[in-house]
């Protein structure tokens, strides 16, 4: 089975103090640490487990600048066979729809039985690229997948619905799945492992190589465009408890007593 996994390199923002830059359309990224999108890490692991059971190849694809080779190498170290980077200044500003067009242009000429993406990217949070890509490639698909079983050319998958409910579906290969976190336990990647693939060639392809014009991608090829970024209004917000650690704990205990927090 030939599997393609789309992986994105995203900034870690959970603990970072974000600053909106002068254009008001992006955040300052100089001080941010980047890593593989969490959902995509689970997708790579899912591909490896399928390959271990079924044989075949895994190709990882990432759209972005040269730094994206880091996440591609990481996926190679985990067990992917090949890596491709799609890169072009024209891709900048692509929304989920334009991003899907870029990925579709590359994937349509590659052998594929199964394509995996993450459910969503941690930075833009569209949760849309995978399903749009499936449509463009004319493939059956399922979003929010938490379990995959393969029998012949049929997949039985679980989709996560709300409130702990799941849905079981069958899909005919070739197909596309968007992978939800928690589907597996992604394997650990050692420094040695990354070193081993450090020299592996990673092909880079631009818009022209993919037969894409400037109107297909980037802002021109997108359905939506950021006009302005701003911080969410804080609203009421929490009353912040100050003081020494002892005073903080003391105040908390008082609040807990008042609010029924001590049974």
């Amino acid at each position: 089975m030939d599997i393609i996994v789309c992986i994105k390199r995203v900034p870690e923002t959970a603990e970072a103090d974000l600053v909106i830059d002068g254009t008001k359309k992006a955040i300052e990224t100089d001080d941010l640490v980047y890593s593989i999108n969490e959902w995509d890490n689970y997708a790579v692991e899912a591909a490896i487990q399928l390959k271990e059971a079924e044989g075949g190849t895994i190709t990882v694809i990432s759209v972005g600048p040269e730094e994206n080779n880091e996440v591609l190498r990481r996926a190679l170290a985990m067990g992917a066979d090949e890596a491709i980077r799609l890169t072009d200044p024209a891709f900048e500003g692509s929304d989920a729809y334009a991003m899907a067009k870029v990925l579709a242009a590359a994937i349509k000429d590659m052998p594929h039985d199964l394509i995996l993406t993450g459910v969503q990217a941690d930075d833009d949070g569209f949760g849309a690229t995978g399903v749009a890509l499936a449509q463009m490639l004319g493939l059956p698909y399922a979003a929010l997948v938490t379990d995959i079983k393969k029998e012949g050319d049929t997949l039985t998958v679980h989709r996560e619905l709300e409130g702990g409910l799941e849905e079981v579906d069958t899909l005919k290969l070739p197909a596309l799945l968007t992978i939800q976190t928690g589907i597996n336990e992604p394997r650990y990647v050692s420094i040695m492992g990354i070193r081993r693939v450090a020299k592996k060639e990673i092909a880079a392809k631009g818009a022209a190589d993919l037969g894409l014009s400037e109107n297909d991608v980037g802002l021109n090829g997108s359905m939506s465009q950021i006009e302005e970024l701003f911080f969410p209004p804080v609203g009421e917000g929490a009353e912040i408890i100050e003081g020494t650690m002892d005073e903080k704990a003391e105040t908390l205990v008082k609040i807990l007593k008042e609010r029924g927090g001590i049974a």
Binding site: L18, D123, S224, L229
Partner: peptide
């Protein structure tokens, strides 16, 4: 965007 840390005003084609 960014897990709820930033809001974006977005226009559509």
């Amino acid at each position: 965007m960014y897990s709820g840390k930033v809001n974006a005003k977005v226009s559509l084609k």
